[in-house]
Computed example of a mutant assay.
Amino acid sequence: MERDVVITAQGHENVTAEHASTLEVTSDDFLTPAGDCILGVEADTVPADFDDDFVEACQSADATITATLVADGHRAVVEGSGHPDLSFENERSHVLRTSDYVDDRTVLVGADAAAGDIDRDLVAALADGADLTLTLSVEA
């Protein structure tokens, strides 16, 4: 079974994507220079919006979750795992983690890439304000 959630967001002039262990897309409408894990702001969907079937599939330790980021013709794919403790209760942010740490913002763990690993052309497009589409797909 594969399920998708599509989130649209905006790039921002302060997108640097330098963080080594996380990647974030937030519904906040601002980004400070300290937010070096954030690739997009003004997300139209937050984890608390996800349907129960998607959440349940992601809560399987055997689930593979793929995050595909697309902006201005550039594409990056990050793959990680589900976790039984994923709650998807946050009403602001989606966080992809290379670690196995879980909080209410976490949408996948064990990611094979973080913000600092994302293609620099994609990052530059987001820093120029490009539209971002983040698609989360789960196979359980």
Rank of each mutant, 00 (worst) to 15 (best):
Leu136Pro: 04
Ala57His: 07
Glu89Ala: 15
Leu134Asn: 05
Leu122Ala: 10
Arg92Pro: 00
Leu39Gly: 06
Ser93Phe: 07
Val138Lys: 01
Leu122Ser: 11
Glu13Leu: 11
Phe30Gln: 09
Leu96Glu: 04
Thr133Ser: 08
Gly129Tyr: 04
Met1Gly: 12
Phe30Asn: 09
Gly110Glu: 08
Ala17Ser: 13
Ala76His: 15
Val95Cys: 08
His83Lys: 03
Val5Glu: 12
Val25Gly: 05
Glu79His: 06
Ser87Met: 10
Gly11Arg: 06
Asp28Cys: 06
Leu96Cys: 03
Phe50Tyr: 15
Ser21Arg: 14
Ile118Asn: 02
Asp4Val: 08
Gly82Tyr: 01
Leu132Arg: 01
His94Cys: 08
Ala67Glu: 02
Ala43Met: 08
Thr68Met: 06
Asp53Met: 05
Ala130Tyr: 12
Arg97Ala: 09
Ser27Glu: 06
Val77Met: 09
Asn14Phe: 07
Val41Arg: 01
Gly129Val: 04
Phe54Gly: 00
Leu31Arg: 00
Ala20Ser: 13
Ser87Asp: 14
Val55Cys: 09
Glu91Ile: 10
Ala63Leu: 06
Asp62Ser: 14
Leu136Tyr: 04
Leu108Lys: 04
Phe50Lys: 03
Glu56Ile: 01
Leu132Gln: 04
Leu31Phe: 04
Val138Ser: 02
Ala140Tyr: 07
Cys37Gly: 10
Thr32His: 12
Leu122Arg: 07
Asp100Thr: 15
Thr45Gln: 12
Thr64Ser: 11
Leu86Trp: 06
His12Tyr: 13
Gly129Asn: 08
Ala61His: 08
Ala20Met: 05
Thr45Leu: 14
Gly110Asn: 12
Ala57Glu: 10
Asp121Met: 11
Ala76Arg: 05
Asp53Tyr: 05
Asp44Lys: 05
Thr16Arg: 11
Ala61Gly: 13
Gln10Asp: 14
Arg92Ala: 10
Leu86Lys: 06
His12Gly: 03
Ser81Thr: 13
His94Ser: 09
Ala17Pro: 04
Asp119Ile: 11
Gly82Ser: 07
Asp36Met: 05
Ile38Thr: 14
